[in-house]
């Protein structure tokens, strides 16, 4: 127990230092975006455009396939896909967060969580660009922004808190075991189909939904942001899973990180 506490303190010290020096992660994250889109006239809005095109195409196919009215399906798909992009890229890039920062980690002593914060920040910037599509969809169908949309901010915060520990622990693990990023990429691909993003949960037969929905953490994490934006409320279970996952995940991650943080430079 005393050891756990010591590891927790070691891990927390690094994370706290990284949060305190958030400015550096911010600069690096912006830099990544700038670098990717330098000399392109639309810049990161290219992502928005391609996301918009993807949403349009998918809604045509699946909206018709499932026979759901577009007015209902399109906002659902839009938010789900934008959120899923945030989740999957944050986790995939979190996997290689340390390995891509190798040169930096080996030269200067920084709080290592900074490199994960950089990944998160970069993806949040992209998320913000993609989010532009949502009001456009609302305008097209002439639906007002639901009154409980503000609740989505709380949900988004909770989602980000969860993504942070997931990215961090994946980053540590993937630095040591270089095959894991491939496995994670594959699992995330599978999760994309298992999670109601391009299909609506009410299409499922009753019994299947318990397994497919309630046992899937990503369902809950998406639901706490998506439901308020669609004008309904996330279920109590959605919130409980989101909150418990954040607390348990962070405690475990900090201890794990405290144990292996000093090894990261050696694994690179």
């Amino acid at each position: 127990m005393a050891l756990m506490f010591k590891l927790f303190k070691t891990g927390w010290r690094d994370i706290f230092a990284a949060l305190k020096g958030y400015e550096l992660a911010g600069v690096l994250g912006w830099q990544d975006i700038r670098q990717r889109y330098r000399r392109s006239s639309f810049g990161p809005f290219w992502l928005t455009i391609s996301m918009g095109v993807l949403i349009g195409a998918l809604s045509l196919v699946f909206g018709n396939l499932f026979g759901t009215p577009m007015k209902e399906f399109l906002p659902f798909l839009t938010i789900g896909l934008i959120l899923w992009t945030l989740i999957s890229t944050a986790l995939n890039e979190g996997c290689v967060g340390f390995t891509t920062a190798e040169a930096m980690i080996k030269q200067i002593s920084l709080p290592l969580f900074t490199h994960i914060l950089r990944v998160l920040w970069r993806n949040l910037i992209i998320f913000a660009h993609n989010l532009v599509i949502y009001p456009l969809v609302l305008i097209v169908f002439w639906v007002p922004l639901p009154a409980n949309a503000l609740l989505a901010i709380v949900g988004l915060l909770l989602l980000i808190i969860n993504l942070s520990w997931m990215s961090l622990i994946l980053g540590v693990f993937c630095t040591r075991y270089r095959d894991v990023p491939q496995i994670i990429a594959n699992l995330l691909q599978v999760c994309f189909y298992l999670t109601p993003i391009i299909w609506m949960p009410n299409l499922l037969p009753k019994r299947a939904s318990i397994l497919l929905l309630n046992a899937n953490p990503f369902f809950h994490l998406i639901e706490i942001v998506r439901a308020p934006l669609l004008g309904s409320f996330p279920s109590a279970l959605n919130w409980q899973v989101g909150i418990l996952l954040a607390i348990a995940g962070w405690i475990f991650t900090i201890i794990f990180y405290g144990r292996f943080r000093s090894r990261i430079a050696y694994w690179l």
């Binding site: 600069v27 830099q31 670098q35 330098r38 000399r39 930096m104 200067i108």
Partner: peptide, 27 residues
């Protein structure tokens, strides 16, 4: 440490941007 002075510099960014970038890395 004055070891790799070019660490973190971006060749596409302007001199000023690089000052901010390198400067941030130096704390």
């Amino acid at each position: 440490s004055l070891i790799d002075l070019n660490l973190g510099m971006d060749s596409e960014a302007t001199g000023i941007e690089n000052i901010y970038l390198r400067g941030a890395l130096l704390g």
